[in-house]
Design a binder for these strands. Structure first.
Lengths: 200, 200
DNA sequence: GCGTTGTTACCTACTAGTTGGTAACATAGA
DNA sequence: TCTATGTTACCAACTAGTAGGTAACAACGC
């Protein structure tokens, strides 16, 4: 463990991510973060300014990575929902941080340019798919996207127990989620009663 | 404002509800609650034990009232969802407290007997409606209920801005929610393309 | 030598919870 | 009806401990 500023920075961010996801902004302790990172408090302040800015840094990194890793496929929205769900289960920090942000900071993190831009492009993609007739146009594209992300995120969150999920339930929950999304996007009167591109 | 223990208790509970809904357990300040209630801190402690117990008292009262006021009608689940939504918009404290409970206390509030019992009876009612053939049996009753409550609650929460909802959007959001629920519960191949008992 | 990377020791402000008491009301005996 | 006694409702001020944040000092490595 030589002196590597970049590496130390990363350790601090990592520790902060865990602490904030677990306890939120008000509940998090700066001392605990520094200790968990094996660094000192002044160093943390030198790198990140203050507690609030540190939360920003944490949230921005997590959300940016999330957006980058979950590209939308408007032709297969159930599959997209499944990927959101999987990500949310694998990294519960994401969902928790998002809820903390909503509760403690009026969702200011969700109003960042990165997020807004990603959203716009996803809505546009859905809109196109609706125009092409691949999926139902019964919901406006923006509402459909919100419906899907809401469902995937909260659904994962609801399933996640205090000490991680019980394995059996997760698969069932995932299946239910996909099924629900399929119902939301399938064309009126299509004979398609459930089998779709997202099954395998 | 004479000496009325019961009334003072109520004022404290009211103030605590607002404070906890707004800031959560860690963010809430006991002094602020006492001040807002026009009472003293020792009195608060005499009546409610400690901060955590006070949160319990607040949450229990709110959730019990909520359960009491939103009876299920398994024949009209979109209407039920609409009522949940309306309640959540009218009393945002309910949704916020629920999320705080999940984040800060691993959802211990949601595991109370009152809640569990209410849930059981609702699941049973849905099950019966499914057996009778009134609504689709494609989702297990328990999952369907969770799907609906999740959607209604989070949907309302997502719509609610920092300073209350903008009126126009709420009606649209409500309509979208009902529509989504209708899709989830309507029978396969029913020609019913949206008009239902819950419209008016 | 000197900028970068780091730590120790400290400070101020705040916070949950308590102590030691007062003011209002109730009731019983004279 | 008045006063003594007990009780309930309530509070100003304090305590012990904790929080975020900083100033002053040390060591590494180019």
């Amino acid at each position: 463990m030589g002196r590597d500023a970049e590496e130390t920075r990363r350790r601090l961010l990592r520790a902060a991510t865990e602490e904030f996801a677990e306890r939120g902004l008000a509940g998090a302790r700066v001392d605990r973060i520094a200790a968990a990172a094996g660094a000192s408090k002044p160093l943390l302040y030198a790198y990140f300014g203050n507690k609030d800015d540190l939360f920003d840094a944490v949230y921005n990194r997590v959300i940016a990575e999330f957006v980058r890793q979950t590209p939308i496929d408007p032709q297969d929205l159930p599959g997209y929902a499944g990927r959101l769900f999987d990500w949310s289960v694998a990294y519960p920090e994401l969902v928790r941080l998002t809820f903390w942000d909503r509760l403690e900071r009026s969702g200011q993190g969700a109003r960042q340019p990165v997020v807004l831009e990603a959203n716009r492009s996803k809505v546009a993609a859905i809109q196109r798919a609706q125009d092409d007739g691949g999926i139902s146009g019964r919901f406006p594209a923006a509402e459909l996207l919100l419906l899907i992300t809401t469902l995937a995120g909260t659904w994962a969150f609801a399933q996640l127990g205090p000490d991680g999920p019980e394995d059996g339930d997760v698969a069932a929950a995932r299946a239910t989620l996909l099924r629900a999304v399929r119902l939301l996007v399938e064309q009126d009167g299509s004979g398609d009663l459930g089998r779709g591109a997202s099954d395998h």
